[in-house]
Measured scan of single mutants.
Amino acid sequence: VTTYKLVINGKTLKGETTTKAVDAETAEKAFKQYANDNGVDAVWTYDDATKTFTVTEMV
């Protein structure tokens, strides 16, 4: 189990959160659900070296 981080650069929601998951795909599903629940529709990137997902909402 690995800890993954999500950085949110949204128009109305900004911040960071983490989740523990067995792999990046599982973490991504959890983070996308979190973003969807909070109304963030954005572009996703992932950095495997830092285990960090970044979501940037387009203006």
Rank of each mutant, 00 (worst) to 15 (best):
K20C: 12
L6S: 01
V55A: 15
G39I: 14
T18D: 04
V7I: 13
K14F: 10
Y46I: 01
G10K: 08
T26S: 12
T3H: 04
F31S: 00
T52H: 00
G39R: 05
T17R: 13
E25N: 08
V7Y: 06
T54P: 00
N36V: 14
E57T: 06
Q33W: 05
K14Q: 11
N36Y: 14
G15V: 15
M58A: 10
D23E: 02
E57Q: 08
K51T: 02
T45I: 08
T2K: 10
D23R: 03
T17S: 08
A24G: 03
T17E: 05
T12W: 14
N9C: 14
D48K: 06
F31C: 02
K5D: 02
K29E: 06
T52Y: 01
I8V: 06
D41S: 10
K5F: 14
A49N: 09
M58C: 13
D48R: 05
V1T: 10
V40N: 05
E57F: 14
K51P: 00
K14N: 12
V40I: 14
G15P: 05
W44Y: 02
V59S: 11
N36W: 15
G39Y: 12
A35W: 15
N9G: 04
A42R: 05
A21F: 05
T54M: 06
T17C: 15
A24S: 07
A35D: 02
N38S: 10
T56Y: 11
E25Y: 11
W44E: 00
K51W: 04
D48W: 05
T50V: 04
A42T: 07
V43P: 04
Y34N: 02
T52S: 02
I8M: 10
K51H: 09
E16I: 13
T54C: 06
D41I: 12
G15T: 14
T19S: 04
E25I: 10
V22L: 10
T18A: 05
A49F: 10
V40E: 05
G15L: 15
Y4M: 01
G10A: 12
A35T: 12
D47W: 02
Q33E: 08
T45W: 06
T3C: 13
V59G: 12
V1Q: 11
T2A: 09
M58W: 11
A27F: 02
A30G: 03
Y4G: 01
A49R: 09
T26W: 05
L6V: 03
T45R: 06
T18R: 05
T3G: 02
T17A: 12
D48Q: 08
A49G: 07
I8Q: 02
E16K: 06
A21Q: 04
V43N: 08
V59A: 10
M58D: 11
D47H: 04
W44M: 08
D37V: 13
T18K: 05
T52C: 02
K14A: 08
E16Q: 09
T19D: 02
T12L: 12
D48Y: 05
K11I: 14
T19C: 14
A42L: 13
K14E: 06
N36E: 13
M58R: 12
Y46F: 04
G15R: 13
V22I: 12
W44L: 06
L6I: 03
M58G: 10
T56P: 02
V22K: 11
A49D: 10
E57M: 10
V1A: 09
A30W: 15
K51L: 06
D48L: 04
A35Q: 04
T18Q: 08
K11D: 08
T3N: 04
D48G: 06
V43Q: 09
D23H: 03
A30D: 05
K32F: 05
K20Y: 11
Q33D: 05
T3M: 10
K29G: 04
T17P: 03
E28D: 02
T50E: 05
Q33Y: 05
T50H: 04
K14V: 10
M58Q: 11
K32L: 08
V55R: 03
A21N: 02
T18M: 09
T19V: 14
V43E: 08
K32I: 08
M58K: 12
A24C: 14
K29T: 06
V55S: 03
A21K: 02
L6D: 01
T17F: 15
F31V: 01
K29S: 06
D23Q: 02
I8R: 01
A49H: 08
G39H: 08
F31Q: 00
T12P: 05
T52W: 01
T18F: 14
T2S: 10
F31H: 00
K51Q: 06
T45N: 07
T12C: 15
G15A: 14
V59Q: 11
F53Y: 04
E57H: 08
A30H: 14
T18L: 08
K51D: 01
A42G: 15
T56Q: 07
E57P: 07
V1K: 11
T19P: 01
V1W: 14
L13H: 12
T3A: 04
F31L: 04
G15K: 13
T54Y: 13
T52D: 00
M58V: 12
A42D: 05
A35C: 15
V55M: 12
A49P: 05
F53I: 03
K51C: 03
T18G: 02
A35K: 04
K14I: 10
K5L: 07
N9W: 13
T3P: 02
V1F: 13
K32A: 05
F31T: 00
V7K: 05
T12A: 09
I8G: 03
V22G: 06
T2E: 10
K20Q: 13
T26E: 11
V1I: 12
Y34M: 07
Q33N: 06
K51Y: 07
T17Q: 09
Q33M: 10
N9I: 14
D37Q: 13
A35E: 02
L13Y: 14
K11G: 14
A24M: 13
V40H: 06
A21E: 03
A30K: 11
A35Y: 15
V7T: 03
A42S: 07
Y46R: 00
N38E: 07
V40W: 15
E16N: 07
K5W: 12
A27I: 02
T12Y: 14
V22R: 11
E28I: 08
E57W: 12
L6T: 01
A42P: 07
K32C: 05
K29Y: 06
D37P: 07
L13M: 11
K51A: 04
Y4P: 01
N9S: 08
T17K: 12
F31D: 00
E57K: 07
V7F: 05
V55I: 13
T3R: 04
G39M: 14
T3Q: 07
T50R: 05
K32W: 06
A24F: 14
K14S: 11
V55H: 03
W44D: 00
T19H: 07
T17G: 04
N36F: 14
V7W: 03
L13Q: 07
T45A: 08
D37I: 14
A21H: 02
K32E: 03
T18Y: 15
K32Y: 05
G10P: 03
L13A: 06
A35M: 15
T52G: 00
K20W: 11
T54S: 05
A35G: 03
T18H: 08
E28T: 03
W44A: 01
T52P: 00
L6G: 01
T12V: 11
F53M: 00
N38T: 12
A27M: 02
T45C: 07
V22F: 10
G39P: 04
G39T: 08
E57C: 12
T56R: 05
Y46P: 00
V59L: 11
Y4E: 01
W44N: 00
N9M: 13
D23N: 11
K11W: 11
D41M: 11
T45Q: 08
N36R: 15
V40M: 11
K11H: 13
K11S: 12
V43S: 07
N9T: 07
A24Q: 11
N9A: 07
A27L: 02
K32Q: 07
Y34S: 03
K29L: 09
K51S: 03
E28N: 04
D23T: 05
W44H: 00
F53S: 00
D37A: 13
E28G: 07
T2G: 06
A35P: 02
V59Y: 12
T45F: 09
T45H: 10
K29P: 01
A30N: 07
K51N: 05
Y4D: 01
A35N: 04
I8H: 03
T26K: 04
G10Y: 15
T56N: 07
A30C: 13
V1Y: 14
T18S: 09
K14R: 12
T26R: 05
A35H: 08
E57V: 09
